[in-house]
Design a protein around this nucleic acid. Structure first.
Lengths: 204, 204
DNA sequence: CCAACCTTCACGAACGATCGTTAAGTTAGA
DNA sequence: TCTAACTTAACGATCGTTCGTGAAGGTTGG
């Protein structure tokens, strides 16, 4: 459990960074939004950079939590590759829509990290990519996915999901549940998912 | 034809904005990179905002130029929807790779525009979206594209192309020509392009 | 032809504002 | 009494912008 002041700071920083971008954001504004003085902020975080770092880390924690929850819900490693890919796509799409500002900071402010901090973040981002890579490669190996370009298909699926944070508006005509289903279908289309017929599975 | 000083300024601003982001960019650095004094910059542009605006406008001009050139190369409006979509995807993918810094500014710094300038830019971005929408909707209407979700497929294709500006490295193992071909194939897969058989076309 | 004038392009200096950061001191609870 | 939580005040640096100046070059009027 985080102290209340710390949560208020993270929330305030999230709003400020999302609205103005890291470079134009003012830590004075952030402290004011959190209802405390500028120096009080320094009691929790050693500077603007660490604030961003904490924000990105917290966002990653939440994202991985969402995806792994969805993965275990469909059966974890026992599930078929198509179901695992569907779970990752569904969780990612939903996360990008439900935590749009969080996601936009994750996706846009990576470059504002100093080199040392960036290294740590890049590792986590590689882990996130592997969430997609694993089921796709498994589907290729098992013969259920037929795309000749699994790497480019993976990048395409990830880009499709991530873009949701930029364009989706919950007050629009498109329901999130509907969008999630369609993204799962589109992802399976992109990897050319065709369930093996039973006689083909038994053949050989 | 633009004056030499102006081109140097745009190039310098492009580098600075791409490296540090609009908010953290310093117009003093930009002027220094362009080899002129800070005040000389104000002779060409009335401020930091107008510099960004000019940069985005120039990038858009180049992008539309690339796409329309590719479109006319495949036959313009006379070409089949699949060929038109392929041309747009190919030109966009190539542009994102060949003009990565330009593209990243186009894609990331939109939010740094002031409201009035943003309005003008959003209109151009809508035009860019229509470059994809037109052939996709035409392909649906003609029965060559079978996806039940043309809107989401369009967004997916656009996101896939745009992401190239972030991850593609020309010194990597993947040739740009190969990537372009794969992206065209993936886009046609996503819209579920299936050429009509001749007898089916003659049927009815 | 020439002098007066204007525009273009460039310079250094300075403006007030805001930035991130730090120092020193105060309060409140365990 | 110790420590976490928080304050006000100030630091130096840098920011975007403005001002006044002037060299260079072409145009105009006499």
């Amino acid at each position: 459990m985080r102290p209340a002041g710390q949560n208020a700071l993270l929330e305030a920083a999230r709003q400020e960074f999302a609205e103005r971008g890291f470079g134009s954001a003012s830590i004075r504004n952030i402290a004011a939004r959190a209802g405390m003085s500028l120096s009080a902020m320094y009691h929790y975080y050693s500077g603007k950079q660490e604030l961003l770092h904490a924000l990105l880390d917290e966002g990653m924690d939440r994202y991985f939590g969402s995806v792994t929850a969805e993965l275990t819900a469909v059966g974890g490693d026992d599930a078929a590759p198509a179901d695992r890919l569907g779970a990752v796509v569904a969780a990612t799409t939903r996360f990008r829509a439900e935590h749009a500002t969080r996601s936009n900071i994750l996706l846009l402010e990576e470059r504002s990290l100093e080199p040392e901090r960036l290294e740590h973040y890049s590792r986590r981002q590689a882990d996130a990519t592997n969430l997609f890579r694993e089921p796709i490669d498994a589907g290729i190996a098992s013969g259920e996915f037929h795309t000749p370009y699994p790497d480019e298909a993976r990048r395409g699926v990830i880009a499709m999901c991530n873009a949701v944070a930029q364009w989706y508006r919950p007050d629009g005509a498109l329901t999130l549940d509907v969008l999630v289903d369609r993204h799962v279908e589109l992802a399976l289309t992109l990897v050319e998912y065709r369930p093996q017929r039973s006689f083909a599975a038994r053949g050989r």
